[in-house]
């Protein structure tokens, strides 16, 4: 039994709105036909326990951003870094997979001895409220060792208890949020449902690693359109390109934008491309997600959110690729 706070579902928006003075509220809300994370003016606009098409990574790592500007003048060259404006943000409604993904991204951008000031600045000022999800089609979180009730990574987590939320704080910022409400404390068992899974296993990962030269990659290479939709919606795909945008002759800016190993130019250096066709590119994506992972933290780069499966216009399913890796090739008899 754990001490949890019981919050009536109908009281949630009013309580969140208390914090609007201090925080910009973010969460899932419709943009036309699509559910995406973004800022909301009022907590009643937030949609909880919904699957967003895109992940929340754009909140910390926008699809394009200026890193610094430069100017040439008589004194020489002058560089001005353009760090993001540091606004306190309250992000409400991340499911467990997106929380896990945030931990991966924290390590990628914060680790390696060089913190990324653009990501880290935004992340540091964001308080995250996780919400237990209702697993739906394409999800496979259990394969990565967590389920829809796993609160890891949240400042505050809300479990579904019918007409109430059961809340627990995991940081000072999370505890502070709770103190603004006049909630009842209850002794309860923290829900711990297991999530959907059964696709990716230690065995399938080991087989994929062994099968780098398997002809099945060619069949996937034939189907993969190289559109990058999978990487765009993925909560842990963090690859980016850096380029310059000149403004006339005197100056300009250096910016970065999302990039992906699915694109032909990703590894193309002048005159040489180590991954010259889509076979190598789709293999790289699957291998990096499932096999190599974020090898610095030993975390998987896939969190089982299923967004890439839903987004792929060619119907490529990373779960099926993993499952097929352990399936032995069928013996085809001559004449059969």
């Amino acid at each position: 039994m754990t001490e949890l706070w019981r919050i009536k579902k109908c009281d949630l928006p009013a309580w969140l709105n208390i914090w609007r003075e201090e925080y910009e509220l973010w969460g899932a809300r419709p943009e036309g036909p699509v559910m995406r994370y973004g800022p909301v003016a009022d907590a009643t606009e937030l949609v909880l326990q919904v699957r967003t098409r895109d992940s929340a990574k754009n909140m910390f790592f926008p699809a394009t951003e200026t890193m610094f500007s430069f100017r040439h003048d008589e004194q020489g060259l002058e560089l001005n870094q353009q760090l993001p404006e540091l606004k306190a943000r309250l992000l409400v409604g991340l499911p467990s997979c997106d929380l896990q993904a945030l931990l991966v991204m924290d390590n990628v951008f914060g680790g390696g001895g060089h913190a990324d000031p653009y990501y880290s600045g935004r992340r540091q000022y964001t308080v995250v409220v996780g919400v237990a999800c209702e697993p739906g089609e394409f999800f496979f979180c259990q394969d990565f060792g967590f389920g829809p009730d796993t609160p890891t990574g949240a400042d505050l987590f809300l479990w579904d208890d019918g007409s109430n939320w059961l809340a627990q704080a995991f940081s000072e910022a999370g505890a502070r949020l709770l103190q603004a409400g006049d909630w009842e404390k209850v002794q309860a068992t923290v829900p711990n449902r297991s999530g959907p899974g059964g696709w990716v296993s230690a065995d399938s990962v080991a087989r994929l690693r062994e099968r780098f030269d398997d002809p099945r990659w060619e069949r996937l290479g034939e189907r993969c359109l190289g559109c990058g939709a999978c990487a765009y919606v993925c909560p842990t795909c963090h690859c980016f390109d850096i380029d310059d945008m000149p403004h006339g002759l005197e100056g300009g800016e250096r910016y970065r934008r999302w990039d992906t190993c699915a694109f032909a130019g990703f590894t193309a250096a002048a005159g040489h491309n180590p991954r010259p066709d889509q076979t190598g590119r789709i293999r790289q994506r699957v291998m990096h997600k499932l096999v190599y992972g974020d090898f610095r933290s030993d975390r998987s780069l896939c969190v089982g959110c299923g967004r890439c499966v839903a987004a792929c216009p060619a119907g490529i399913d990373i779960r099926a690729i993993a499952r097929e890796a352990v399936r032995e090739k069928k013996e085809v008899k001559a004449g059969a």
Partner: peptide
């Protein structure tokens, strides 16, 4: 190894081969 790099910090992902980033 010569490999296309962008960030040089093990973040932009471009120079990943297996369990390595060529840049770091």
């Amino acid at each position: 190894l010569e490999m296309k790099m962008k960030c040089g910090l093990g973040k932009c992902g471009r120079c990943n081969i297996g369990d390595k980033y060529v840049c770091v």
